[in-house]
Nucleic acid binder design. Structure first.
Lengths: 224, 224
DNA sequence: TTGCGGATCAAACGATCGTTTCATATGCAT
DNA sequence: ATGCATATGAAACGATCGTTTGATCCGCAA
């Protein structure tokens, strides 16, 4: 009912309107994050994008194909905006690399960049996995988890078995994911409520890095 | 299409058939966990329960009321089956109390008891909160988180500010929740896949308790 | 101008879902 | 036996959803 024209430039589109497809992707991202794959109707997506109901099927084939396209672009954008190496050189100190990893994971989860709905999209994909999660794990999560495994192995030392390294890496990741996976609980616990604000992200990152660093302290002269 | 009668006792029901309501609750629990609130249709629930389509509305009013009833009974059962104090006396050593807390949380999440779908139900409620989460947090999660806060405060000492205690408690909880909140990812990461088996729950509990215990080590003679 | 292909539109189709309706069965007090 | 409240059954209603259809608009090459 609003403006049928895209709110982009004032001038007319160059050859044909590329805007509709992009606006559908953005609107679908928001609505899939808000209401889920089933809950977000094609009509609502088209309306928010200022497009016709048939636009989704015309540009993406069907609703499920639009969904995986949203997941791919959203996840890829999050990967590019917050790289887990934090721009650090490969030979940077382990502590700094661990801190950078934690910071990147938290930034992705809590939407420090533009679209704040990407974290919720990921949480929904965990609770209700679709075909999109396979490529997300294979192309994004798995290689980055390998990088974290290397960091943890460097912290724990070469004598620690692989299973213990994997468990420790999981402990690091979990502390970052918690803050938006369990967001409805965080919002309802008075002790955790102050950390919901975006400004608290840095404090959480510092805590997670310190907490993990203390737990991963190399047992130098321990009983053994 | 199968047996219309409940497969309970061989004899006839005493006065009237109480079984239908209970079978609807059980079938709804499974299907809500498998497909979510929207995905599980009342027809599928009624069919699995061996009841008529109208039975849901007759016994529970409508679908959403059946859902909150499922959540309440399922969550209450999990609370009762795995108490976070682990049956320990209140004056037990902090380390044992922390271990018991972690073990209980993991047992609930990974369905060590009977119904393995309760964890998935909780994960879905996190990704897509309904009216049920308010009572779950108020009656179950909040008081138990307070108990964890007391444990952590005892470990960190009285000089640590409340925000640091809250962050540390969140770190403990997150390590337990991770293993079923992020289950689709765990299942796809080769390094974590072996921990999916139910037998690995005890190993995870030991790791989480040790990891947290090391991170929460009281800074005896640290810089201060 | 004409013709054409891509893009958008209103309208409708078929399927599914939650819910309702009304009939019927059952157990129990009278 | 009779009346009544509870419970179950088959069938349908109204609403919504994903998708399809056919017409229309528009920029551009011939």
């Amino acid at each position: 009912m609003r403006s049928k024209r895209p709110p982009s430039a004032v001038s007319a589109p160059p050859t044909h309107d590329e805007g509709t497809r992009a606006r559908l992707l953005a609107a679908a991202g928001e609505l899939f994050a808000e209401r889920g794959l089933r809950g977000a109707t094609v009509r609502a997506i088209a309306e928010r994008a200022g497009a016709n109901v048939a636009a989704v099927n015309y540009h993406f084939g069907d609703k499920s194909r639009l969904y995986v396209e949203v997941m791919r672009s959203s996840f890829g954008e999050a990967l590019a905006r917050h790289p887990t190496d934090g721009g650090l050189p490969a030979d940077a100190p382990v502590d700094e690399r661990l801190r950078a990893f934690v910071r990147a994971l938290l930034a992705r989860a809590r939407g420090v960049g533009r679209p704040a709905w990407q974290g919720r999209l990921m949480a929904r994909e965990m609770a209700d996995p679709s075909a999109a999660i396979d490529v997300m794990v294979r192309e994004g999560i798995a290689p980055e988890f390998e990088r974290l495994l290397a960091i943890v192995r460097e912290l724990l030392g070469p004598r620690v078995p692989a299973e213990a390294v994997a468990l420790a890496a999981a402990s690091v990741v979990s502390q970052c994911l918690f803050w938006f996976f369990a967001e409805p609980v965080v919002a309802r616990l008075p002790a955790l409520k102050p950390f919901r604000e975006a400004a608290a992200t840095e404090a959480i990152a510092r805590h997670v890095a310190e907490f993990s660093r203390a737990a991963l302290a190399r047992p130098k002269g321990r009983r053994r």
